[in-house]
Design a protein around this nucleic acid. Structure first.
Length: 935
DNA sequence: GACATCACG
DNA sequence: GACGTACGTGATGTCC
């Protein structure tokens, strides 16, 4: 055995990173014989084997160890009890796999090191220093930014996911400083993942700027007075202690007491019997065989256990085809395209993606189409690329060479895209479907990987392709940013060189296809196939049609209102300045706060986290009873909101070709199953104030048509009555009573005929509070009553309707056990924070209580929307908008009654037959020349 | 780009 | 016993 020194190269694998990556990259595999979850172990072993056998060239290891975390309490928790406090709980099926990964490491005969009370990062730091001091080199296998401070002097990192080494320059790219100043930057910027506080309002960019200017964190803090920006200066002076604490949290401890030496980490061969024994015990057939072959040993026989359930299976495809842009074909003529079409027909599926000039599908021009039929087998068909030489005024608009005519490609593709026997797979298919629809192609049938992810993982993480690819395929897609640039110099996709576009676009289709292959079999294992097939996927064509049809908005009405608002605001502004005795920016909450609380010394000035005064409406309303100024500011703010967000901005959203406004609904935007509306958001058009409501007068029907609005009456309270099984509430709904008055009567012992508006108002607030996961504090603030009194109301409510308490307790218990809650229709809403410690827990609990109620209501209207096109097919009526519990239609005058009848039937029966509600659903209808009248 | 504010259900 | 609190969204303006 030699002594570690010059010429030696120590590789340190961050064990936890390997485990999590393996866990997320693979489906939830279980051991056939007994159902033990082993997906992460399987992935871990594959990654370990691949790393050991990999070709590292001149960076090959002479010494190797895998380092793990041990215990949850470290010296950092003693410094700061909130450190890593917002970490998600470990998934249930991962926990039992952790000890197995230790066993796996030992089976590979690789030293496996951990130390109670220290994070793996500290052990890595200590070993890296020791190895470097002994004259050797070090490679840290991890992409964790917390380890970047160790880079330099022969220490480098290796990002196994991106297959990329990270040296001093790589660290500089990430942090804007070299490794020796990384902790300084981290101390300032903080870290929301580990809950390191840092300095409020300062991110990595600003931190690097400051550190580079002053040389070091200590120098910066000592000379903080010299900082020019006043807010930044104050923050650094005020927050000094917190920043210094942050530095101690992020700095790694390179002096952990280790009970082993570097020499013990020397690379050694595995004992075939031990390694194969372990792999066989795990029942990894493919891997056992592969390693047996390599070691020249006999593969142990793994008994073919009778599968307990159909779902248990070995790794479906552990051999992943590598992503390689060189494999992608650029399709430039009909003959080449025909080959891809034939492949799609042969398989019965094809992944499709479109590239266009805009994210707005109503304005976007088709630039190219990519297809994928198997992992790694993808192509790009450029159709609308233009020569991007901006200096050439004449050539800049010409189609680039080597593209087939757009119409020719579409003519060839149309039969495939519309063929019932060929499944079209997309990521956010609504976008592509709209693009194709504008070229007369009705894409069907479809699958959508974004919606699959939403059905399976809603609440856990986002569902964008980049995130899904990284999480589930372990591959970081080619970013679009470098291709398009940003800011003023940004270009559209048609100006991207065809070679670059091919690599990018074909990869998107490739990724989509791989995600689909991974997700498709998982849907039924997670038991969300029905959710996906009835509540998500069928919504795509329905929403696409609504969005493309749009809603007519009268520009003149908006424009006149904008002018009127501007005039009023000018008057108010002058009045406010007069009252203040000086001019200031009324639109700046900070300046408003200074005037009200400093200059005028009004009470109630609280500061937000950035140190500025907080001036929300409820605070100003309280002041407005005594003072003129806050009242005028509130008036001004209301007008400012109406003007900027609605009467001004909405005009810009009127499509010049259609004269209508085309919103975009996000199916996966809200965790509960609600839709979200963007560009513009038509789900928050004012209605609560008279002045605001008049904006709805601009939403009009075409001549000869009428706006018709149908909305569910009290749908969330009805669902609550059903789910929590509250007889009194159910009876009240059955009798058609005023539900809030009834609640008030029950709670306060007031007969219905003696009910006052004030008592009813309180009961109404409590009813809503229950749906939101009520708290004494919240109700007190809402009703502006003392907290004790609010708590008393709540206690009385629970006493009168005990089922509510049971529902809340059961829901939280369910969420804690399973990590999700469910709607009546089986939608799962994950609650990853439910077992967290600290303030997150409260949020998570209330969200868990609300989600089944809000989510079930969302499911109900989704079901109604899916059935609506069929129900009104023969009527001259169009469904235009959805606003959570309301559907807006544009209907020919003579068909209004028929449409209301048909739509009401669909909406009131939307839960049937899947769910038999104890409470009937009631739909109110209205009609008029515009949305204000119809609502 | 973070934060504060406010529009909706 | 303290903590910080109604649930779910999106758009805008200020300020750094």
């Amino acid at each position: 055995m030699s002594t570690f020194g010059k010429g030696c190269h120590l590789h340190l694998i961050d064990g936890s990173a390997f485990i999590f990556r393996a866990y997320h990259a693979l489906p939830p595999l279980t051991r056939k014989s007994d159902g033990l979850p082993i997906g992460a172990v399987s992935g871990f072993c594959n990654m370990l084997q691949r790393y050991v056998d990999g070709d590292h060239g001149p960076d090959a290891p002479t010494h190797l160890a895998v380092i793990f975390d041990k215990g949850s309490h470290t010296f950092r928790n003693d410094l700061y009890d909130l450190y890593k406090a917002n970490r998600e709980a470990m998934p249930e099926d991962l926990r039992p796999q952790i000890p197995l990964t230790r066993q796996a490491t030992e089976a590979f005969n690789i030293p496996c090191k951990e130390l109670e009370g220290y994070e793996a990062d500290d052990i890595i730091a200590t070993l890296a220093h020791q190895a470097r001091d002994a004259g050797g080199r070090v490679t840290i296998v991890s992409s964790d930014k917390d380890l970047m401070q160790l880079v330099g002097d022969g220490v480098e990192m290796f990002d196994a996911m991106k297959n990329k080494r990270i040296d001093r320059d790589g660290v500089f790219e990430k942090f804007g400083v070299f490794p020796d100043r990384v902790v300084d930057v981290q101390a300032l910027a903080g870290d929301s993942v580990d809950n390191v506080p840092g300095a409020p309002g300062i991110g990595v960019k600003t931190a690097a700027l400051l550190i580079n200017e002053f040389g070091s964190l200590e120098e910066l803090l000592d000379r903080a007075e010299e900082i020019k920006q006043p807010k930044r200066r104050q923050t650094l002076i005020d927050m000094r202690a917190q920043i210094e604490l942050s530095k101690r949290l992020v700095a790694l401890d390179a002096n952990t007491p280790l009970d082993f030496t570097l020499d013990e980490l020397e690379l050694r061969d595995p004992d075939p019997e031990k390694l194969l024994g372990f792999l066989a015990e795990m029942e990894f057939r493919t891997l056992t065989k592969r390693i047996a072959d390599k070691l020249g040993a006999e593969a142990p026989v793994i008994p073919e256990a009778p599968a307990p359930a159909a779902q248990a299976e070995d790794a479906p495809a552990p051999e992943q085809v590598a992503f390689d842009p060189a494999n992608y074909e650029c399709v430039r003529d009909a003959a080449a395209l025909a080959k891809w079409i034939a492949q799609a027909r042969e398989r019965g599926w094809v992944a499709v993606d479109t590239e266009t000039t805009s994210l707005d599908e109503m304005r976007a021009e088709l630039v190219g189409i990519s297809l994928a039929v198997e992992p790694g087998a993808a192509c790009y068909i450029p159709l609308g690329h233009r020569d991007g030489d901006a200096n050439d005024l004449f050539g800049s608009d010409k189609l680039a060479e080597g593209q087939m005519p757009l119409q020719e490609a579409l003519d060839l593709l149309k039969p495939v895209l519309e063929d019932d026997a060929i499944l079209k797979i997309g990521q956010n298919m609504k976008y592509d479907a709209k693009i194709f629809a504008r070229h007369g192609i009705d894409v069907t049938p479809i699958d959508d990987t974004m919606l699959m992810s939403y059905a399976m993982h809603g609440g856990k993480h986002g569902h964008g392709m980049d995130a899904l690819s990284e999480m589930y395929l372990g591959h970081v897609p080619i970013p679009i940013k470098p291709l398009l640039g940003s800011g003023k110099s940004a270009i559209t996709f048609d100006k991207v060189a065809i070679a670059d576009a091919t690599a990018y676009a074909a990869e998107d289709a490739d990724i989509t296809l791989r995600l689909w292959q991974l997700f498709k079999p998982q849907l039924h294992r997670v038991q969300v196939t029905t959710v996906y097939e009835t509540l998500e996927r069928p919504l795509v064509p329905v929403l696409a049609e609504m969005e493309m049809h749009g809603v007519k908005v009268d520009r003149d009405v908006l424009s006149r209102m904008s002018n009127a608002f501007a005039q009023k605001m000018a008057g108010l502004e002058a009045e406010i300045h007069e009252l203040a005795g000086e001019p200031f920016n009324v639109g700046s909450p900070a300046q408003v706060g200074e005037i009200l609380f400093d200059k005028m010394s009004l009470p109630g000035g609280t500061r937000g986290k950035t140190g500025k005064y907080s001036t929300p409406a409820d605070v100003l309303e309280d002041l407005a009873t005594e003072h003129e100024m806050p009242a005028r500011i509130l008036d001004w703010r209301q007008l400012q909101k109406l003007k900027s967000t609605y009467t001004d901005a909405l005009q810009g959203h009127i499509n010049p070709e259609t004269g209508r406004v085309h919103t975009s609904y996000s199916i996966t935007g809200a965790n509960t199953g609600r839709l979200a509306s963007t560009d513009p958001n038509l789900q928050n058009i004012p209605v609560r104030t008279e002045e605001g409501r008049r904006i709805r007068e601009a939403f009009v029907a075409e001549p000869g048509n009428v706006m018709v609005s149908l909305d569910y009456s009290q749908i969330e309270l009805r669902i609550l009555a059903h789910i929590a099984d509250i007889p009194a509430l159910k009876q009240a709904f059955a009798d058609g009573l005023d539900i809030h008055a009834m609640t008030a009567s029950e709670m306060f012992d007031v007969p219905l005929d003696q009910m006052t508006p004030e008592i009813r108002r309180r009961a109404k607030a409590i009813n809503f509070g229950v749906i939101y996961g009520i708290s004494g504090f919240g109700l007190a603030r809402n009703l502006r009553i003392p907290r004790a009194e609010a708590q008393e109301f709540i206690d009385r409510y629970f006493q009168r309707f005990p089922g509510i308490r049971t529902y809340m307790d059961d829901t939280i218990a369910f969420a804690k056990e399973h990590g999700y809650v469910q709607t009546l229709f089986g939608r799962k809403i994950h609650t990853p924070e439910i077992n967290a410690k600290g303030p997150h827990a409260g949020f998570a609990r209330r969200a868990a209580i609300n989600a089944p109620i809000q989510g079930t209501a969302a499911d109900v209207i989704r079901r109604a929307m899916v059935r609506m096109p069929g129900a009104i097919r023969d009527l001259p009526a169009k469904m235009l908008l959805q606003v959570h519990d309301e559907l807006l239609f544009e209907v020919a005058e003579d068909a209004v009654d028929a449409t209301i009848a048909a739509a009401r039937d669909v909406m009131e029966g939307a839960a049937d037959p899947a769910v038999r509600l104890d409470v009937k659903l009631v739909v109110d209808a209205g009609r008029g020349a515009n949305w204000a009248e119809a609502h």
